[in-house]
């Protein structure tokens, strides 16, 4: 019974752990890392939804077309997710670098004033 929902709950748990990291973060690099953790929960959720008992990878390179396979749609979405995650992380880290240069700190609590 619990096995029927445990993978979904794991995804929710990873999401909340990542969010906890973002909320309590005292360093912007750590914030970006926590955001990456939060985002990785979506991979777990997507792949858990697509799993089929006894199913193999949805690639018919050397298997018969009648082999049961897991859902290819969510795998393609996870691919999109990974690409988006990596590029957004890069963009955010570039912003952190600028903040560190202009304000001399990466602690979000110290970054209070607006500066032109």
């Amino acid at each position: 019974m619990i096995m029927d929902v445990l993978p979904y709950l794991t995804a929710g748990w990873i999401f909340l752990v990542g969010l906890y990291g973002v909320v309590t973060s005292s360093d912007l690099i750590h914030t970006v890392g926590s955001l990456a953790v939060t985002q990785s929960s979506t991979y777990v959720l997507l792949l858990a939804i697509g799993y089929r008992e006894g199913g193999t990878a949805p690639v018919y390179g050397d298997t018969s077309a009648r082999t049961p396979v897991v859902d290819p749609v969510v795998q393609a979405m996870a691919l999109t997710d990974v690409v988006v995650g990596a590029t957004v992380t890069a963009l955010l880290l570039a912003l952190v670098l600028q903040a560190a240069k202009r304000h001399g700190t990466t602690d979000p609590d110290q970054l209070t004033g607006l500066r032109g």
Binding site: E53, P58, V70, D71, P72, V73
Partner: peptide, 16 residues
């Protein structure tokens, strides 16, 4: 949600 590892994957079946 449908049970983990279940047989019902309407989108997956059509996409495959």
């Amino acid at each position: 949600l449908p049970d983990f590892g279940g047989e019902r994957h309407p989108y997956g079946d059509r996409a495959a």
